[in-house]
């Protein structure tokens, strides 16, 4: 079960500004999703090792070889704001 306080906390961590109607709505919706998944707990997993991913693969690496990305400008241009060769972001901290 997830309560309204938990929903508020998660919204805050995700920097989401939600209304009190949405708090109510998401609490109900998230609970129904969690209930749905909770059916899995009916299974006996006593002898099953925990898994973090569905595909059995490991050690995928690449060589340490330089392959610079050719179009830096396109990357900068994708940002909402830029200044010279920097990404520009709004004020980070409120002054106090």
């Amino acid at each position: 079960m997830i309560d309204r306080e938990e929903v508020k906390k998660v919204a805050n961590l995700a920097r989401l500004d939600i209304t009190s109607e949405e708090e109510e709505q998401f609490t109900t919706q998230l609970n129904s999703i969690l209930d749905y998944f909770d059916q899995l707990s009916e299974l006996d997993t006593e002898d099953v090792a925990p898994t973090t991913r569905a595909i059995e693969t490991s050690n995928i690496t690449r060589t340490d070889t330089l392959k610079p990305f050719p179009d830096k400008q396109a990357l900068l241009d994708s940002a909402p704001e830029q200044e010279d060769d920097y990404f520009r972001v709004p004020k980070i901290m409120a002054s106090n």
Partner: peptide, 12 residues
């Protein structure tokens, strides 16, 4: 200083 700045520039 961070707390007096009006914006920031990011170098990645």
């Amino acid at each position: 200083r961070l707390d007096g700045s009006t914006y920031s520039l990011v170098d990645f």
